Amino acid sequence: MPRRTATLLTSALLLITMFCVGALLNVPYAEMSPGPTVNTLGSHDGDPVLSVEQKPGRKGRPKEYDTSGHLNMTTVRVTGSEYRMTLFGALSGWVRHDSLVVPHETLYPDDKSAKEVDQENAEEFSASQESAKAAALRELHIPFSTHVIVGSVEKGAPAHHRLHAGDVITAVDGIPVSKAEGVGKVVTQHKPGEKVTFTVIPAAKAKAAQKQGKKPPADDAKKVTVGTRKAPDDGRAVVGIQPAVGHTFPFDIDIKLADIGGPSAGLMFALGIVDKLTRTDLTGGKFVAGTGTIDDQGRVGEIGGIQMKTVGARNKGARYFLTPAGNCAAAAADKPDGLTLVKTSSIKDALGSLKKIRTGRTDELTQCKAH
Rank of each mutant, 00 (worst) to 15 (best):
residue 116 E to Q: 15
residue 128 S to F: 11
residue 125 F to L: 02
residue 72 N to G: 13
residue 62 P to V: 10
residue 92 S to W: 14
residue 97 H to Y: 03
residue 89 G to S: 11
residue 75 T to I: 01
residue 93 G to E: 09
residue 79 T to P: 02
residue 111 D to L: 07
residue 82 E to C: 00
residue 112 K to F: 11
residue 56 P to A: 09
residue 78 V to L: 02
residue 76 V to R: 11
residue 73 M to W: 02
residue 133 K to H: 06
residue 127 A to R: 14
residue 61 R to Q: 14
residue 96 R to S: 15
residue 65 Y to I: 12
residue 84 R to Y: 02
residue 118 D to V: 10
residue 110 D to W: 07
residue 107 L to D: 03
residue 98 D to I: 04
residue 114 A to G: 04
residue 111 D to R: 10
residue 65 Y to C: 07
residue 77 R to Q: 12
residue 130 E to R: 09
residue 65 Y to W: 12
residue 113 S to N: 06
residue 98 D to L: 04
residue 63 K to N: 10
residue 60 G to D: 00
residue 56 P to V: 09
residue 70 H to C: 05
residue 122 A to C: 06
residue 131 S to V: 04
residue 60 G to K: 00
residue 71 L to P: 13
residue 126 S to L: 13
residue 98 D to E: 15
residue 64 E to F: 02
residue 111 D to V: 08
residue 121 N to C: 04
residue 114 A to S: 14
residue 108 Y to H: 11
residue 136 A to N: 13
residue 64 E to Y: 00
residue 130 E to A: 12
residue 92 S to V: 13
residue 89 G to M: 10
residue 78 V to T: 12
residue 72 N to A: 15
residue 120 E to Y: 11
residue 59 K to Q: 06
residue 91 L to G: 05
residue 62 P to M: 09
residue 81 S to R: 03
residue 95 V to P: 09
residue 61 R to F: 01
residue 63 K to G: 03
residue 117 V to S: 10
residue 96 R to H: 13
residue 102 V to H: 12
residue 82 E to M: 01
residue 91 L to C: 04
residue 84 R to P: 00
residue 86 T to S: 15
residue 126 S to A: 14
residue 66 D to V: 08
residue 99 S to R: 13
residue 55 K to C: 08
residue 125 F to Q: 06
residue 136 A to V: 10
residue 55 K to V: 09
residue 59 K to T: 03
residue 130 E to T: 12
residue 114 A to N: 07
residue 96 R to G: 08
residue 91 L to H: 05
residue 100 L to M: 13
residue 53 E to Q: 11
residue 49 V to C: 04
residue 117 V to C: 08
residue 124 E to K: 14
residue 115 K to A: 13
residue 57 G to D: 06
residue 136 A to S: 13
residue 114 A to H: 10
residue 129 Q to G: 09
residue 68 S to T: 15
residue 66 D to E: 14
residue 120 E to Q: 14
residue 126 S to P: 03
residue 94 W to G: 03
residue 92 S to Y: 15
residue 93 G to W: 01
residue 79 T to M: 05
residue 61 R to N: 12
residue 60 G to Y: 00
residue 87 L to Q: 04
residue 77 R to Y: 10
residue 119 Q to W: 00
residue 69 G to L: 01
residue 101 V to S: 05
residue 124 E to C: 07
residue 75 T to R: 05
residue 128 S to L: 10
residue 127 A to N: 14
residue 64 E to K: 02
residue 126 S to W: 08
residue 51 S to T: 11
residue 111 D to I: 08
residue 121 N to D: 13
residue 128 S to W: 09
residue 107 L to N: 02
